[in-house]
Design a protein around this nucleic acid. Structure first.
Length: 428
RNA sequence: GGAGAGAUGGCCGAGCGGCUGAAGGCGCUCCCCUGCUAAGGGAGUAUACGUUGAUAGCGUAUCGAGGGUUCGAAUCCCUCUCUCUCCGCCA
């Protein structure tokens, strides 16, 4: 949610900025509603003021033992009028809330203007793609020929976009998650958190998935509406929902390893093969809750934290900054990490680190007490993958493949691999 | 799933349908007093929105949430949520 002051004060400038993101703000519609809201609200408040005043007179008159009927008569019609006006206001406010909650965040000034992923800008590269002296296999061929990865059985159990992993590969997947979690906690000062995977509507509203992206979520039940989290960003960020934080408790750095669930509606035909795009996948997620003046710096740090994982795994990657047209709904600025996928001969997204500034904080009423003003103000929140576990597995499998179809294990994962240093299909 | 108890400000805790945005206490802030410390005295201490150029001020709302009764609700009624205790069931 944007700061409502932005809409009230600089709506033309705001509309301009939103246009860069491909969102058209209906200024007339907004201003019409806002005008109605104002007049209804003042009208209602003055009616309430009148009612309160008269009610006090009644109380006073009664205590004096005087006749109250004449006073009662004077407010005879007030109640009814108030009721209809309140209903009208409720209506207008509902529309305003829907409008406001579906406006995307405004891009930071440093974000390149553009319309889609072709306008993203590469910032830097790390590592050099390995030259293979044999034809490379993709992770599906590797996994299936080692009999450690089974899409057919997964499809029987669930459907498309699921996978069954077995033995050493399942262990490698787990090792990756454990490594990332332990690494971030030890090296980067994160607090490990174990969070619910099922959340309510309010929580999804807080991070911006609802109301606009209902169709992307798995809804599990109706009587209490529960949703499977699409990312741990949702529960982690909402940890501070509704709270007023002390200045010295910031920054907060949370990390969690969770499964994530996405319908992938609208991505039909995209990445249908393999583990790149699944309905269920695992991710290690980082969330920062910071003072507003720290969010830019924090974004760089968070991106660095994700990069450290890929460097430790020794897989080549590049960092890009997303252009205005390619950013997610809540983001003010996003760095994507893209890892080298040999079989595709290209870089693919493995982490996305964003600052959303106060956008989510305003939705979830997460505030801090600014010592300078003494007042509660929205905090800034950031989120980033540190990194996607399934995609990291793909990267490791493909970048560490050998001519005989076996897969070497990155040295850094040794502590979690129980002595296994190569996947040959027989181990585990 | 069954039975019961509860939800009030940063915390604890009062509150007969009317002068209660909310007693009292704790904590915190400022001031005074006191030659350190301790003790004591005084004032202040929620959030949102509206009004205003911005304060102050004023107005409105908020005592778990949402409805209702009433001229008037923290207080009465209904629904829901959550917490706690006991029983059952389980990881």
């Amino acid at each position: 949610m944007l700061d409502p002051q932005l809409l009230r004060r600089n709506i033309d400038q705001l509309a301009e900025k939103l246009r860069a993101r491909g969102y058209t703000l209906d200024i007339d519609y907004y201003q019409g509603l806002e005008k109605q809201r104002k007049s209804l609200q003042s009208e209602i408040e003055s009616m309430q003021e009148q009612r309160n005043r008269i009610s006090k007179q009644i109380g006073y008159a009664k205590s004096q033992g005087r006749e109250i009927q004449p006073i009662l008569d004077s407010v005879d019609t007030l109640g009814g009028q108030l009721k209809t006006r309140k209903a009208e206001l409720g209506n207008v406010q509902q529309k305003l809330t829907v409008l406001l909650s579906e406006i995307p965040n405004v891009a930071d000034d440093s974000v390149p203007i553009g319309s889609d992923e072709n306008d993203n800008v590469e910032i830097r590269r790390w590592g050099t793609p390995k030259e293979f002296d044999f034809p490379v296999k993709d992770h599906v061929d590797l996994g299936e020929s080692l009999k450690l990865m089974d899409y057919e059985t997964a499809s029987k159990l669930s459907g498309s976009r699921f996978v069954v992993m077995t033995g050493g590969l399942a262990r490698l997947h787990r090792a990756l998650a454990q490594f990332m979690l332990d690494f971030h906690v030890r090296e980067h000062g994160y607090t490990e958190v174990n969070v619910p995977l099922l959340v309510n509507q309010q929580t999804l509203f807080g991070t911006g998935q609802l109301p606009k992206f209902e169709d992307d979520q798995f809804r599990t039940s109706d009587d209490p509406p529960y949703y499977l989290i699409p990312t741990a960003e949702v529960p982690l960020t909402n940890l501070v929902a509704g709270r007023i934080l002390d200045a010295d408790s910031l920054p907060l750095r949370f990390i969690a390893h969770t499964s994530c669930f996405r319908k992938e509606a609208g991505s039909y035909g995209k990445d249908t093969r393999g583990m790149i795009r699944q309905h269920q996948f695992e991710k290690v997620e980082m969330v920062h809750v910071v003072r507003p003046d720290q969010s830019r710096l924090s974004l760089d740090q968070m991106t660095g934290h994700a990069e450290a994982i890929l460097q430790a795994l020794e897989v080549p990657y590049r960092v890009i900054v997303l252009c205005t047209g390619d950013m997610g709904f809540s983001a003010a600025k996003t760095f994507d990490l893209e890892v080298w996928i040999p079989s595709q001969n290209q870089f693919r997204e493995i982490s996305s680190c964003s600052t959303v500034e106060g956008f989510q904080a305003r939705r979830m009423k997460a505030r801090w007490r600014n010592p300078a003003t003494g007042k509660p103000e929205p905090v800034h929140t950031l989120n980033g993958s540190g990194v996607a576990v399934g995609r990291a597995l793909v990267a490791v499998m493909e970048n560490y493949q050998n001519a005989d179809g076996s897969i070497s294990i990155p040295a850094v994962l040794a502590p979690w691999m129980g002595g296994l240093d190569r996947l040959t299909g027989t181990a585990g």
